[in-house]
Nucleic acid binder design. Structure first.
Length: 270
DNA sequence: ATGCCGTATGATATACGA
């Protein structure tokens, strides 16, 4: 099988969103499903439901209440050695290597709190430090033979048309120049290709998150692109399509993030 | 402010999301 459908989705609690995940998987049939903000300890994770959805392989890393990531796969893989980020064990990263040698990294970057000043806000400092560590880590591992995919809720909307109003969000955490600068350094750390913008180039607006607080998220459409799919240059020719699936955002009691679907044709890889 | 909703927890208020 050379075709692979990869999905990244911040579900904002896997238990609260289980029915949505089941419905989405039934209609979109991902081969690899990367989740963020699962908000559940590993012992309480609803694994049986995922087995029923057809995922024979998984790796999960969660904690009580906050954070938590998971990867479900129909393709066999080897889990990558877990790594602590910023000296914490706060369940923000998992990685796997498929049999064709493609490594998939699933990240949940810290949101960063409200105040965009690392001296006044420890959460913002953590967010910047986390991105710095990502940069260093991928720089250290740089090799043209690497076949890497990086997905997840990176909590930064880097481009002007990744937000509904560049001007009005310049001082809002997720779109401040210092975050964009940090993300840009991470992106250069392994010559990452932005797979979403490969299919929807600027200046076309592209969002994956809409606040719960808008009265009508679809009508006001004040979104941000916080979720990302990046690939190393050697995988770029294998990108086939990309879609931000707005439908689950419109379901009852949704996640505030929409799933991002990317189709690959990995013929000749591995 | 776009703007007060949604998640989780030894909970009936609080932390956190972004």
């Amino acid at each position: 099988m050379t075709k692979m459908r990869l999905v990244t989705w911040n579900v904002n609690s896997v238990r609260a969103r289980l029915a949505h995940v089941e419905k989405f998987v039934a209609q979109s049939a991902p081969d690899v499903l990367c989740l963020q903000e699962t908000k559940v300890r590993d012992n309480d994770f609803p694994l049986k439901a995922f087995t029923k959805m057809g995922f024979e392989h998984h790796v999960i890393a969660g904690q009580k209440s906050y954070n938590g990531v998971a990867i479900f796969s129909k393709l066999p893989f080897v889990p990558t050695e877990p790594k602590h980020w910023c000296g914490k064990d706060d369940k923000r990263h998992l990685a796997i290597t498929l049999e064709n040698g493609v490594e998939i990294n699933n990240f949940y970057v810290p949101a960063g709190g409200d105040v965009p000043d690392p001296d006044e806000n420890d959460k913002f400092a953590h967010k910047l430090a986390f991105m710095n560590e990502m940069t260093d880590w991928f720089k250290k591992r740089q090799s043209k033979d690497n076949k890497l995919i990086l997905v997840g809720d990176l909590n930064v909307a880097p481009l002007e048309t990744d937000v509904w109003s560049h001007k009005q969000l310049l001082k809002i955490v997720s779109h401040t120049p210092i975050e964009v600068e940090h993300m840009s350094r991470t992106q250069s750390s392994h010559d990452w290709v932005d797979a979403m913008r490969h299919f929807v180039p600027e200046p076309e607006p592209l969002f994956s998150w809409w606040s719960y607080r808008a009265r009508d998220w679809r009508a006001s459409n004040k979104g941000r692109r916080l979720d990302h799919v990046w690939v190393t240059p050697n995988l770029k020719p294998h990108l086939k399509s990309m879609q931000v699936d707005l439908e689950p955002r419109g379901w009852e009691k949704p996640s505030d993030h929409a799933p991002v679907i990317v189709d690959f044709d990995l013929k000749g890889i591995g």
